[in-house]
């Protein structure tokens, strides 16, 4: 199956921290259809934290989300209503998948919803794939950067607004298009 016959949803979460007790504060999603990012269809929402769970101030500071905005935001259940159909539509595209996957699974769990087990592509893994190939050709070349912003800079993509769920998701989608072409992958199988 050609890689671009699939729909991909790039997703990024901003969270209050990295531990399992931290919370989702915002979510951004951008689809890729027929190999083109359809930015107009993006989804972005802040998420109101569940009462009783601790909020880390460091995390809040990192992404400039202020508590007042969060209080007015829809609760996790509502956000998940919007995330779910997109998530189920195609392949989920994440940069450094384990962290966001963990948060998503826990969110489904909290709300007692069955985990939809989406197919996932991780741009960090695509970078690793490219790295393997590069090592084969040039054994002593420098390792490729793995961070989203660093990797984009390395490959010549423009700087983006970091730590914002929507623009990080878009940044991931753009990086994916570039990596796909560098890998010369024609099919989805060649990407996984």
């Amino acid at each position: 199956m050609r890689w671009d016959s699939q729909t991909y949803w790039a997703l990024d979460l901003e969270t209050s921290g990295l531990s399992p007790t931290d919370q989702i504060l915002s979510v951004g999603m951008v689809p890729i259809r027929q190999g083109v990012i359809c930015y107009g269809e993006h989804f972005y929402s802040l998420v109101r934290p569940q009462a009783g769970l601790p909020l880390s101030h460091e995390g809040i500071r990192a992404h400039h989300i202020v508590p007042a905005e969060l209080e007015a935001a829809p609760p996790l259940a509502e956000a998940l209503e919007a995330i779910h159909p997109r998530l189920s539509q195609g392949i989920l595209l994440l940069h450094h998948a384990p962290v966001d996957m963990g948060f998503l699974r826990r969110a489904y769990g909290h709300l007692h919803r069955p985990w939809p087990r989406p197919r996932v592509l991780d741009t960090v893994r695509l970078i690793a794939k490219l790295q393997e190939r590069q090592c084969y050709l040039e054994p002593h070349s420098r390792p490729l950067p793995r961070g989203l912003a660093e990797a984009r800079a390395h490959f010549g993509l423009p700087p983006h607004l970091e730590h914002h769920a929507l623009y990080d998701a878009l940044a991931t989608a753009e990086l994916f298009l570039l990596l796909r072409s560098r890998l010369g992958a024609k099919t989805l199988r060649q990407l996984t």
Binding site: V36, A173, E174
Partner: peptide, 11 residues
């Protein structure tokens, strides 16, 4: 403009 924006990559 934002609604209709598509982003494409050409190597």
């Amino acid at each position: 403009v934002e609604r209709g924006l598509e982003i494409s990559f050409f190597p």
